[in-house]
Write a protein that binds this DNA or RNA. Structure first.
Lengths: 194, 194
DNA sequence: TTTGCTATGTCAGTGGCTGACATCAGGAAC
DNA sequence: GTTCCTGATGTCAGCCACTGACATAGCAAA
């Protein structure tokens, strides 16, 4: 079996090379960008990463999840920011927490752009993104409750905060350079609404 | 195969086995409720409805879509309400439009409950629901723009309106009897947030 | 009756995803 | 250094969601 792999060294991207998960994430984003999500098979991604299809599904729950590895870290950032916020109102707590998240993403704008483009091009990927944001909202609401915010204010503030994040993200990706500033501007626009 | 049973009653409009789509929707909701979404195959649904698997996919894009047939009507209701609203602010337009939608759903509370329970039990179905709500938000934003509301206020108001709808829906399903009243109460809670 | 339209059935095939089991690399234990 | 253990990977068989191509059944107008 592996004797053939020893011969074809170059074509076989180091099956035991480190960071198979990272290689899969890169390969997936490349392929989704090059030929689109639907036109890419998991076998394609695995081949480019130098592993088998089965290995892909050991690292990611499904074909979509490979684009959403950072969701957990983002959620931790938001929850921690709410837990340690010095703000007075629920909206302010969520707002500053979203700013922290924005600062974190700010550092990898090119990656965020490419990823956002791939997601925008496919409803299946949009669904997964919406679910991640909903989970983020639920976690934020829970963190608000831990700070003493009662229901339904906690859920409402958290959901509105996620909405602000979404709208600000689009503006940032679109043409604005400063993501945290987009958050602040969108929060201001929200206040002006009523 | 399809023996006698109930054939042609009033709708002689050119259908030979009446309402295959409706039977599929009923069968799907029943099975998703009885044994869960994952434990139900499309073949199961088709069999209970008295058709083949292929026919299911001629009526619905995928296994999830069978639960979301009413989304289009709901969207039309909201868009029409915004287009004909006499309210002054964007938030008020969206708020009253969501009230119209709530009135519409109010009539079938039991159905809404069973459907909501099935969706709540499965992340895949939640994803589809979130996508439908996102599309609804985009349509509402477009309707607001047609009424002269500028960006980003239109998108922001529409998204916040959808959030209010979501939160109010949960309260209605949970224990409140009056859905439109839930919308109004949630809108009031939103105002109180800032 | 004939013709034509539409909803449905049949069949083969692709691809996402899983379970069961074999294998390999690296390090710990001996 | 040999053995053994552990975790990551490969291999294979199989289920099921979903699709394209083509055949067929019922209905209606010509």
């Amino acid at each position: 079996m592996m004797s053939e792999a020893a011969i074809t060294r170059l074509g076989d991207m180091g099956r035991w090379e480190p960071d198979a998960k990272g290689r899969l994430m890169v390969a997936a984003l490349e392929l989704y960008t090059e030929r689109g999500y639907e036109q890419t098979t998991v076998a394609d991604i695995a081949q480019r990463a130098g592993v088998t299809e089965r290995t892909f599904f050991r690292h990611f729950a499904d074909k979509r999840e490979v684009l959403f590895d950072g969701a957990g870290t983002l959620q931790e950032t938001v929850v921690t920011a709410i837990a340690t916020s010095a703000a007075q109102t629920a909206i302010e707590m969520v707002g500053t927490a979203m700013e922290r998240a924005a600062e974190m993403m700010q550092e990898r704008r090119d990656f965020a752009r490419q990823r956002a483009a791939a997601i925008a091009a496919n409803p299946s990927l949009q669904e997964r993104e919406l679910l991640k944001l909903a989970v983020l909202g639920a976690a934020a609401a829970s963190a608000l409750r831990d700070r003493g915010v009662p229901e339904p204010a906690a859920t409402l503030a958290a959901e509105v905060g996620v909405t602000v994040f979404k709208v600000a993200f689009e503006r940032w990706i679109d043409d604005q350079p400063d993501f945290p500033a987009c958050i602040r501007a969108t929060l201001e626009g929200l206040r002006a609404l009523q």
